[in-house]
Amino acid sequence: MAGRPTPRITAMQPEPLPNLPPRYLRTPEAAKFLGLSGRTLEKHRTFGTGPAYRKIGGRVVYRLEDLQHWAEAGARTSTSDPGLGAATTRRPGRPAVFARR
């Protein structure tokens, strides 16, 4: 509309309802938040290598805090850094294969 100034956002907006419990994300939203495909997140869940999740009414949901914690567990400072966590795509019980056949 002509004549109405466009509001400027100069600071982060406060959370709309800070007294509510943490927001839960479904698999597609959680995957997007992590920069993964939904299928990759499902595989992590199947292999037990992914972030903590909950089942509410038969639906899988992730807490934002759990997604952030899992991503931080994968933090490394170099390619030789073993890190402290296990944000990995390797299946448990299957050793990595590096030798050529």
Rank of each mutant, 00 (worst) to 15 (best):
T88K: 00
L84F: 07
R8W: 14
H44V: 00
N19C: 15
R26P: 10
T40I: 07
Y53Q: 05
L17T: 12
S37A: 12
R54H: 13
T40V: 12
R45M: 08
S37K: 15
R8S: 13
F47Q: 10
R45T: 11
A31P: 00
S80K: 15
G85H: 00
G38D: 05
P7G: 07
L25T: 00
M12G: 08
F98Q: 15
L20H: 06
M12Y: 08
F98G: 05
L41S: 00
R54D: 09
T49C: 03
P14T: 04
M1I: 05
G50M: 00
R94E: 15
A11L: 09
A96I: 06
P16H: 06
P95Y: 04
Y24A: 06
G48Q: 04
Q13G: 06
Y53P: 01
E15F: 06
P82N: 03
V61E: 08
I9Y: 10
V97A: 13
A99E: 14
G57T: 01
F47P: 01
R63V: 07
P7A: 14
K43I: 14
H69C: 04
R26S: 13
R26T: 13
R8L: 15
T79P: 01
R91S: 10
A31N: 01
Y24S: 03
R8Y: 14
R100G: 07
E72T: 12
L41V: 04
I56E: 11
A96T: 12
P22H: 06
M12R: 15
G57I: 02
T79M: 12
P18M: 02
T79Y: 11
P5S: 11
K43C: 04
Q68D: 08
G74A: 05
P14A: 07
R59N: 13
P18F: 01
R23Q: 13
R94K: 08
Y62N: 03
G74F: 05
L17E: 09
L17D: 09
S80H: 13
G3D: 14
G38F: 02
T6C: 11
P82H: 02
K32Y: 08
A71V: 07
L34D: 00
R8T: 14
R45Q: 09
G58H: 03
R39D: 07
Y24Q: 06
P18G: 03
T89W: 14
Y62T: 03
A2F: 11
R26G: 08
R8D: 14
G35S: 06
A71E: 11
G85F: 01
H44G: 00
L20P: 00
K55A: 04
G48V: 04
P95S: 11
A31L: 02
Y53E: 01
P22K: 04
T46F: 12
T40A: 13
L20I: 02
R23A: 10
R45I: 02
L84I: 05
R8V: 15
S80C: 10
T49V: 04
R26E: 12
A73R: 08
P14M: 02
R90M: 15
G57Y: 02
L84V: 07
T27S: 10
R26Y: 10
L41N: 01
E42K: 14
R8G: 10
A96S: 09
V97F: 09
R63I: 04
T79S: 12
R100I: 11
P5L: 12
L64Q: 10
T77K: 10
S78H: 11
R26I: 07
G58R: 01
R8I: 15
P16E: 12
A2G: 12
P14R: 06
R101G: 15
G35Y: 06
P95T: 07
T77G: 07
P5K: 12
T77E: 14
